[in-house]
Lab assay of single mutants.
Amino acid sequence: MAAGGDHGSPDSYRSPLASRYASPEMCFVFSDRYKFRTWRQLWLWLAEAEQTLGLPITDEQIQEMKSNLENIDFKMAAEEEKRLRHDVMAHVHTFGHCCPKAAGIIHLGATSCYVGDNTDLIILRNALDLLLPKLARVISRLADFAKERASLPTLGFTHFQPAQLTTVGKRCCLWIQDLCMDLQNLKRVRDDLRFRGVKGTTGTQASFLQLFEGDDHKVEQLDKMVTEKAGFKRAFIITGQTYTRKVDIEVLSVLASLGASVHKICTDIRLLANLKEMEEPFEKQQIGSSAMPYKRNPMRSERCCSLARHLMTLVMDPLQTASVQWFERTLDDSANRRICLAEAFLTADTILNTLQNISEGLVVYPKVIERRIRQELPFMATENIIMAMVKAGGSRQDCHEKIRVLSQQAASVVKQEGGDNDLIERIQVDAYFSPIHSQLDHLLDPSSFTGRASQQVQRFLEEEVYPLLKPYESVMKVKAELCL
């Protein structure tokens, strides 16, 4: 049975990233139509530049190519590739079939990587351009969430054990800070992308030097003109047959890092959902379990974690691919890159769409948070109580021993009897502590235990987050809708 299948058929496997999760716009960027249309555009740009620099290419040939950029006979191309065992030459023939007058000058002087690699770089750039505003929107939604809850005390956790208090907004800023680093890295790697350009079979530009009869300047002009037509500021000066596969490492490393950030955020949300302090959106008709109707599973956060793990592992592909590119190139890269580049971007696209949807509907339960604080705060307040007693004339050592005994009794009630923490009640009825009984409410005010959390939130948002989001103001209103 021949390899390949009808990918629109229910009898043929289709990647869930495309069929179930990723956005239509990201799927289109990695589609065959987008790819092969870009090949034709690159052939047109090459012909236009070659004509401008004096090669015998007519206006009629150029116009014929322009008129057929979208006229792609995919069936013919597939048949040609089956016959020739070469995808680029299959599309040269297919393009030439609908451009008979231009057929002889299509791909003039070029090698397969002229269309293959340059198209990949265009796709990487455009895919990054799709991700950047999506990530900015996630940051914006979380920034709104953090600002609104900047002063809401909550129990902090280290080692997932109760620690000092923080605020809900401050905790959210930990998430935002990681995503801001990801946004900066995505922008950097996007701006650092260079075009492969017009380089020939081993990167020496020998074929173009021959076409222009040894004119170095025209060869350099050709490279520059096509690079500018493709919208790049610069091209690699040095290439082998391909652009260095280190570029793929750079791009997928940034995406993998984004995956790590999203995994951490969504894990926190899942843990908070278990504590009943916070939940992701839950639709009115949504079913959490087929057997347990009360369940409210954090399905979206779980999906993000599941896909983020996949995204983090994909960076190993370009690392290994770059390491086995012998001399000017081997074909070890080809099949692998067809999979890992598309999957990385479709996965990143999915987790950003999902995280935006989550961040637009996060639900906080202040009463649950308050109750958990009441359970733990008495123990945390013991040092403040000791200091207040010393100020009232008591002995630190005597007070410490009193607190120690009462704390152990209260802990026994919590752990052995399943009761509430009654340390404060014990202190309130103990005559030894009568000098500070009137101060206990103040000493137990949760806001006095959150330090500068709310001020940190305000400063972080104003100095770091809002300036970073400013270039994306025009796209901030787009909502994230999930079908599944």
Rank of each mutant, 00 (worst) to 15 (best):
I139S: 10
D59Y: 11
K479V: 11
A410L: 05
L155R: 01
P133F: 14
V219M: 14
L311K: 02
L124Y: 10
H86Y: 00
R20A: 00
F460W: 06
P133T: 14
K147D: 11
H97L: 15
H97F: 15
E360L: 07
E343V: 05
L258G: 03
I238S: 06
S31T: 12
E60M: 12
S323G: 09
D191N: 11
K246A: 02
S434K: 13
T166H: 07
F195M: 15
E417S: 10
F145C: 09
D332Y: 00
A103S: 11
E302S: 03
H7L: 14
Y432N: 08
R245V: 01
E25A: 14
Q164T: 06
K233W: 08
G96Q: 03
R372W: 05
M312K: 05
D178S: 07
A453R: 04
E464S: 07
I427P: 03
F208H: 07
A77F: 15
I122Y: 13
V168L: 09
P446G: 06
L193Q: 09
I122V: 09
E383I: 04
A102L: 07
E343W: 03
P153F: 05
I287P: 01
L406C: 10
P24K: 14
E425A: 13
G116F: 02
F36E: 10
I123P: 02
R190C: 10
I358R: 00
T244I: 03
I386P: 01
V247T: 12
C305K: 02
S151K: 14
D117S: 02
E360M: 07
E277M: 07
K170L: 07
D178C: 07
F95D: 00
D332H: 01
E280W: 00
T119Q: 06
L121Y: 03
L174C: 12
H86V: 00
G54K: 10
D441R: 10
L271D: 03
A381H: 06
G54N: 11
A235H: 12
K477R: 15
Q41L: 12
V364D: 05
L362Y: 06
P100F: 07
F433A: 06
F212L: 12
A388D: 02
G419Y: 08
F232L: 13
M316Q: 13
D178Y: 07
R234V: 09
R329F: 06
G109K: 01
A291P: 04
V88E: 01
T350I: 15
K199Q: 06
Y294R: 01
L132H: 14
P162K: 00
H97A: 11
H86Q: 07
S407D: 00
L152W: 08
V92R: 01
S9K: 13
D215F: 13
K276P: 01
A411S: 09
R196T: 02
M299A: 14
